[in-house]
Design a protein around this nucleic acid. Structure first.
Lengths: 261, 261
DNA sequence: AATTATGTTCCATATAGTGGAATAAATTGA
DNA sequence: TCAATTTATTCCACTATATGGAACATAATT
């Protein structure tokens, strides 16, 4: 929810993105006046911004003046996904981790305050692919999220934690910054993060951090499983597999994309 | 390829989108100078535009100064897809069409010169979902593309056809505007479009047009099948099913979203 | 028909984007 | 290793573009 500091460096573009975010965050297609309440812009200004977004195909307007995100985003995202070098490099490693564990494997990267899923490998492909790719979850209550946070340089970590708004998804969701901070320290020591049913009841996972040399992006790999079928002990056994997967993705990145990736 | 008229009404935002398009169109992650050649902007200007896009997460820069589309697009597109009212309304109808035919069903909407796939229903879910959703194909050699074109008002159709650049994907791809024009007339009469292996050899389909009352968007539904297994005759038999599917989606839209959608 | 809510247009003003040129950084070649 | 060359980044006077308050138009509501 909390999204934007009053001042931002990206001028007109930033404002346009604010509008898109506002539409994305709305529970149902917002009308013009709804948006007027959500983004801090005067009528005339917002109206032109929205018109421009519509003209560019980033927003689409229905007959009743309500707005939806436009299909042009789908088109771009499709490219963003299929061309993504990190994902391309990681994919075979994820597949291998899946083969070794038999459970669902996720790859997620840190984006803003959230972790967005870049890829997913699971056996029963009955579930719609899109149900995860591109989805975003909070960092503080997911395996990949906490793993990714642990890979951030200290200053950056502080900044991000300070900006978080904690919400208890389950009884075991970490309640505040202090608890998260303690857990991150532990993850940094062990190189492994757990989600102990902190986001969804009955679902837990093991995850390992992943980052580019320069830390210009941080990510996480995880193996997720239902608690009733896979006990915590098994998750512990998988620690080396997950760690190895993360390590080999990083090595692969380094060798393929040059030492500086 | 042909993308932009010299003048466009969306100012700064439009230019930013041009840059995104240029990155999306590149066969491999372009560097700054590559982009400089593709978008018509002076160095200083382009540099700031790119910086802004990176800061907003719409572009991401790798260690070697090459640019990729950013993950924020995935996040937005995920929302764009899951919230899309048209798709939500259409989904059960697509599923029904799939059950009746046993073959792959597509839903695509017209976006610029292309048709982008909004949904896909197929039995063997082995294929990755993202392999189609958000993908774009030319209008003039796909079933949904031609169907969608046929639903455009005359003036709009002329304009779009004039802007097309024809490329022969297969021996049966329509070669030019005249041939397409003739076929569109036929589709308007019959209400059914065929792709006779015009995009991919061995793949053909039946499609029907679909549009919102006000024509502010046009789309198509199709049943696609391999030619070796499903003969043309069978496609003909499916005509009523496809037409009914399109009709019932439109009716459903009208009733759910109000008479004006 | 009058009232209220909602959407759209206008235009003087200021802000934010522009772009040519200078600087810095990385890469290549001798 | 150092110069030559390519490539990326910064700077800033200038101006095009976005701004926003207010007037106007168009539904919806009473």
């Amino acid at each position: 929810m909390a999204r934007r500091d009053d001042a931002n460096g990206t001028g007109t573009l930033g404002k346009a993105m604010d509008v898109l975010d506002a539409v994305a965050a709305a529970p149902s297609p917002p009308r013009f006046t709804d948006l007027l309440g959500k983004v801090d812009q005067p009528r005339g200004t917002l109206h032109r911004q929205v018109s421009n977004l519509v003209e560019e195909g980033l927003l689409s307007v229905r007959g009743d003046h309500s707005y939806e995100l436009g299909v042009r985003l789908l088109r771009l995202a499709s490219k963003a996904w299929s061309d993504n070098q990190f994902r391309l490099v990681a994919e075979p490693h994820l597949r291998r981790l899946h083969d070794l564990t038999g459970e669902t494997v996720h790859l997620g990267v840190l984006s803003g305050a959230e972790v967005v899923y870049l890829d997913k490998v699971e056996s029963r492909q009955a579930v719609r692919m899109h149900s995860q790719i591109g989805n975003a979850s909070p960092t503080y209550c997911t395996g990949v999220g906490k793993a990714a946070l642990s890979a951030l340089p200290e200053a950056e970590l502080e900044r991000r934690i300070a900006a978080l708004a904690f919400r208890a998804y389950t009884p075991s969701t970490l309640p505040d910054a202090a608890a998260l901070r303690r857990e991150i320290d532990e993850i940094r020591r062990s190189g492994i993060a757990y989600d102990r049913e902190e986001h969804e009841p009955g679902i837990h996972c093991v995850a390992a951090p992943l980052h580019s040399r320069s830390r210009d992006f941080v990510a996480g790999v995880s193996v997720t499983a239902p608690a009733y079928r896979i006990p915590m002990a098994r998750l512990h056994e998988w620690e080396p597999l997950v760690r190895d997967c993360a390590r080999s993705i990083m090595e692969d990145m380094a060798s393929r994309l040059g030492p500086r990736s």
